[in-house]
Measured scan of single mutants.
Amino acid sequence: KLETFPLDVLVNTAAEDLPRGVDPSRKENHLSDEDFKAVFGMTRSAFANLPLWKQQNLKKEKGLF
């Protein structure tokens, strides 16, 4: 399991300012399950079932792209 970080560490943070080991294209993977659901309004599995373009739009909207 990946290390999780608080939302404010990941949202609207440039790649070079992210904690070590965080993939800038997969910031959402480093949210706790609770934060993930609070941000996206759905579970990880529901998010994973969305088309890629919709996932990317949601990530942009939430500052996690």
Rank of each mutant, 00 (worst) to 15 (best):
N57W: 11
R26G: 06
T4A: 07
A14P: 13
L58G: 00
N57P: 00
D8V: 09
R20K: 15
T43M: 08
K27T: 08
D23F: 03
T4W: 10
S25H: 14
V9K: 09
L31W: 03
R20F: 15
E28V: 02
K62I: 10
W53K: 10
G63Q: 05
E16K: 09
A38Y: 14
P6I: 04
R20I: 15
T4Y: 15
L52E: 12
R20M: 15
Q55L: 01
L2K: 10
K59E: 02
K59Q: 03
T43N: 13
D35E: 08
G41C: 12
L2S: 11
F40R: 00
L52I: 12
F40A: 00
W53Q: 10
K59W: 03
T43K: 07
V22M: 03
N57V: 12
K60E: 11
L31E: 01
E61H: 09
F36I: 02
N49Q: 14
D35A: 06
A46P: 00
L64Q: 02
M42I: 09
E34K: 13
P6A: 07
V39Q: 04
G21R: 03
N29R: 09
L52V: 14
K60D: 07
E16Q: 09
L50Q: 07
A15G: 09
K54G: 07
A38S: 13
A38E: 12
S45H: 15
V39W: 04
L52S: 10
K1L: 12
T13G: 03
P19K: 01
S32V: 04
L50S: 03
T43G: 10
G41A: 13
V11E: 05
N29L: 15
A38C: 10
V39G: 01
M42T: 05
L7W: 08
S25L: 15
L10R: 01
A14L: 11
F47P: 00
L64Y: 03
N29G: 07
L2T: 13
D33H: 07
E61I: 12
R44S: 06
D23I: 05
T4F: 15
G63K: 06
V9Q: 09
E16F: 04
K62L: 10
F5Q: 04
L64A: 01
L2I: 14
P24G: 05
N12V: 08
M42E: 01
D17W: 05
W53P: 08
D8H: 15
V22R: 02
L10T: 02
K62Y: 10
L52Y: 14
L7R: 05
S45R: 11
L10M: 03
E34C: 07
L2A: 11
K27L: 15
F5P: 02
N12I: 06
A38T: 14
E34S: 12
V11I: 14
V11R: 09
K37A: 12
Q56S: 10
V11C: 08
R44V: 05
D23P: 03
A15D: 15
S25A: 15
V22E: 05
L18K: 02
N12L: 08
T43E: 13
N49D: 15
N57E: 11
L64R: 01
K59H: 01
E61Y: 05
K60F: 10
D33Q: 07
K1I: 12
L18Q: 04
E61F: 07
V22H: 03
L52C: 14
L18I: 06
R44N: 04
G41D: 12
W53I: 11
T4G: 04
D35G: 03
L18H: 04
H30Q: 02
S25Y: 15
N49H: 11
D23K: 03
L2V: 13
T4R: 07
K59R: 08
V9N: 04
N12K: 06
L18V: 06
L10W: 01
L18M: 06
F47V: 00
R26M: 09
K27R: 15
F5N: 02
S45P: 13
A15S: 13
F65L: 14
N57I: 11
Q56D: 12
L18W: 05
N57F: 13
S25I: 10
R44Q: 08
A48G: 09
V11W: 06
F40D: 00
D35I: 05
G63N: 06
K37I: 14
V39M: 06
F36H: 00
L50G: 00
S25K: 11
D23L: 03
L2F: 15
L58E: 04
R26W: 07
T4Q: 08
E34T: 11
N57L: 13
H30N: 06
K1H: 13
E28C: 03
A46N: 11
K60P: 00
M42R: 01
Q55G: 01
T4M: 08
F47G: 00
V39Y: 04
N12W: 11
Q55A: 05
D23N: 08
L10F: 02
V22K: 02
D17N: 07
V11Y: 07
D35P: 00
N12P: 03
Q56G: 08
A38G: 08
S32H: 06
S25M: 14
K27M: 14
Q55P: 00
S32G: 07
R26A: 11
F47C: 00
K54C: 14
T4E: 06
F36Y: 02
W53F: 10
K59S: 03
T13I: 10
P51Q: 05
G41M: 11
P51L: 01
L2N: 11
D8G: 09
P6W: 03
N29I: 08
T13Q: 08
G21S: 08
A46Y: 10
R44D: 01
A46F: 10
M42C: 08
G21F: 05
T13C: 11
K27S: 04
L7G: 03
K54Q: 13
V9W: 12
N29V: 08
N29P: 01
K1T: 13
E3L: 11
A14H: 09
V39H: 05
E16V: 09
P51C: 06
K27N: 02
R26K: 13
T43L: 11
R20L: 15
D8W: 15
V9F: 15
K1R: 14
K54N: 11
R20V: 15
N12M: 08
G63A: 04
A48D: 11
N29T: 07
F40V: 01
E16R: 06
P6Y: 02
V9A: 08
Q55R: 10
G63I: 02
K60M: 12
L7E: 03
D35S: 06
L64G: 02
N49W: 09
L50F: 06
D33C: 07
P6K: 05
E3H: 10
R44Y: 05
P51H: 04
E61A: 12
V39I: 08
F47M: 01
K27C: 05
T4C: 08
D33V: 07
D23Y: 03
K1V: 12
K62E: 05
D8I: 10
E3A: 10
A38P: 00
A15Y: 08
L31C: 01
P51S: 08
P51A: 08
P51N: 04
L2M: 11
D35T: 05
L50A: 02
R20N: 15
N12G: 10
G63Y: 04
